[in-house]
Amino acid sequence: MAHPLIAWALALLQTLLFIASAPLLAGWIKCVRCVLQNRASPSVLQPYRDLGKLFRKKVVLAEEASWLFRSTPYIVLGTMILAAAVIPLVTVRLPTDAIADVIVLVGFLALGRFFLALAGLDIGTSFGGMGSSREMMVASLAEPAMLMAVFTLSMTASSTNLSTAMHYLLQSGLVLRPAFVFTAAGLMMVAIAETGRLPVDNPATHLELTMIHEGMILEYSGRHLALMEWASEIKLMIYAVLIADIFLPWGIATRFTAWALVMGVVAIGAKLALLVVLLAVIESGLAKMRLFRVPEFLNLAFLLCLLGLLSHIILEVGI
């Protein structure tokens, strides 16, 4: 174990890297999607430029906006940064990992979502209200599935701490776990629903009658909108890193040497790039679902996660 001060510095650096590279991931998704659809793609750095532009613009507030509406962007971004801090990105066993376990991580995401939904209702426009109610519907179905996936991981590793669980997975080597196959599929479906990607929500359009996320942030402008956009990019990154961490933990640094850390950065970069290509292929291949079919989609995700848990108990415990 390294000096505590160095470890904290590393944890801070890792979190900064996490939130700074989130727009890059969003840009990379757009690029891959454009290539798949035979369109000329914007630069990978376009999300940074968008954020910069929005930060420079003036904030326009509705007359009825309360303090809740003004403070929500900061709360949402804050919860996302906290959540990002507890996920091992480059290395495991950092002091921030001990702050919160996976269940608290789900709680952070829920807290951000709660305030987002309140802000959607605050102004009183019909789109905001519809967006909030839909977001809560999706969340109420996606969260149990996500928790099932988390339980499967915790039961396998006998720990709810993400860092400890990853350490266990790395040490047990390459084991075929039927539970993880189902859980990976279920968690991916949850991630698609929670980050508002196709086929649940279309991230690329405003003013669609079925929009969910865009409906809630429709009234935001300028700095507030930039914070919201950034928070949703971090959320996408959180899910991507979580999937990469749990199901492909190899390559992450377990010691604090320079070489291991560089390898960790390269490994997570490669894993995320590949995952995003997979996501883009899924998104390009599917049409957006009708809103009333979303519960069926999430029901399947829940079933997959439940099957993962069951097959863990039946096939992997007590051998």
Binding site: V175, P178, V181, F182, L307, L315, E316
Partner: peptide
């Protein structure tokens, strides 16, 4: 491990 994996997949086809 592979047998368990396949057994889980057979169960999945039933679902």
């Amino acid at each position: 491990q592979a047998i368990r994996m396949l057994a889980a997949l057979v169960l999945f086809t039933s679902f």
